[in-house]
Design a protein around this nucleic acid. Structure first.
Lengths: 219, 219
DNA sequence: CTCTTTCTGTTGTAAAAACAACCGACTTGT
DNA sequence: ACAAGTCGGTTGTTTTTACAACAGAAAGAG
């Protein structure tokens, strides 16, 4: 377990905590470490969860099968990411998705009760971990809200306008650089790439935006 | 401030905490109370936030103006709801939306630093508030993820399938009752009601589902 | 009971998006 | 330098959706 302390140190959960303190905290947080072979299930739809998970090695997919058996991949989890934290509340019900190892992986489990109820003053960095957890979830939340704000628009143009407007606010400028290429932006907005490209050019012709590559200017 | 303690007691943030304890905790949480006339701004786009807010009276709208000035209402906040919690992280940047009172309203502000860093053992219910906050955010998170899972589908049929499948999982049955009428479901999925109604009937004719009113059976 | 309102399904048309296929500009690796 | 791959834009066709308008059923009010 100790071998992964340097990895944990770089995660959002342990941000600002030193390796020594992490080593000490592992027991106080009720940490367990499990390894998975490629293809094995880390979490299964329908299970209950009482731990917050951190991926220390490998790569995972979040996937879902609908009632008629159609599978879709909802996302990917990389090293250092926190996951499962949204399903540890007692009233959260069971998991709705599967999580599968797409390569040999190592996962840390932290008992949520022990994470959240700061123990005695013994580990004074515990409070920081609680804060980190809180901020990590907020960040996920903001990302979800932003995406939802774009996706709830009906037309591709409206989605683009919504996305570009939010980015302009975040970057506090009418001239912005986005972290996507065209295909990625289309995937993010859940639209067809060529249709989106087409719409972008129309918006340019309408005098709404200027762009080259992933740099946009709102007019 | 005391007059609102019974209201606070019913909020998710103070769930499981008695009125006496809430009264005691108010100072330890750095609580402030502000009132707003109808139409006044509670939060403004571009501001920074260091408090978690709870609406104690009235009703608020979350709204956004895009770069070209088009306004849209993103949601509504009712009595007892927590808000602002996603923007209190130091790295969260400024607010992206406005929050406006749609009727005379009363809002409680809790300093996030004092909420999260549990103080001395003086208020032993403080830990419970931290837990409640955590669970409340997780719940929002789950809601957002579910909605996003539906909305990221391209066609109305796929959205419906995704939504119904998730509900079936949550209710653990192929026969489910949904909390929406047709118009509300269409709004939730961001599609046109009549088009959705049409698609639902086609799905029924294709033998995928049966339904009457807001009760659905997946086949 | 009757009138009104709300909810749901239906239809036709116009608008928009998805899809497929292609092209040229650029990059990268050999 | 050349081949292969990536990226962004364009076009035409098909599919899907939005929109508007209407009708029947159910629910509620007076």
């Amino acid at each position: 377990m100790k071998e992964f302390v340097p990895v944990l140190r770089k995660t959002k959960l342990f941000s600002g905590v030193g390796e020594e303190e992490i080593s000490t905290m592992l027991s106080c947080l009720g940490a367990r470490m499990l390894t998975y072979k490629k293809g094995e299930y880390v979490l299964r739809q329908g299970e209950r969860l009482s731990d917050i998970l951190v991926l220390a090695k490998g790569s995972l997919h979040i996937q879902r099968d609908d009632y008629w058996g159609n599978r879709s991949i909802l996302g990917q989890i990389g090293v250092g990411e926190i996951f499962g934290e949204a399903y540890v509340a007692p009233e959260s019900g069971t998991l709705l998705n599967d999580v599968i190892a797409v390569e040999d992986s190592t996962v840390f489990f932290f008992d949520v009760k022990r994470v959240i109820s700061t123990c005695s003053s013994a580990c004074r960095f515990h409070t920081m971990v609680v804060q980190n957890l809180f901020f990590a979830i907020s960040e996920k939340n903001r990302g979800l809200v932003q995406k939802l704000g774009c996706m709830s628009r009906r037309t591709t143009r409206e989605k683009l306008i919504s996305y570009l407007s939010e980015e302009a606010k975040k970057q506090n400028s009418a001239s912005i650089t986005i972290p996507f290429n065209r295909q990625q932006l289309a995937d993010y907005l859940s639209v067809d790439r060529s249709a989106m490209s087409n719409e972008l050019c129309k918006m340019r012709d309408d005098g709404l935006v200027r762009f080259e590559k992933n740099h946009f200017t709102l007019l």
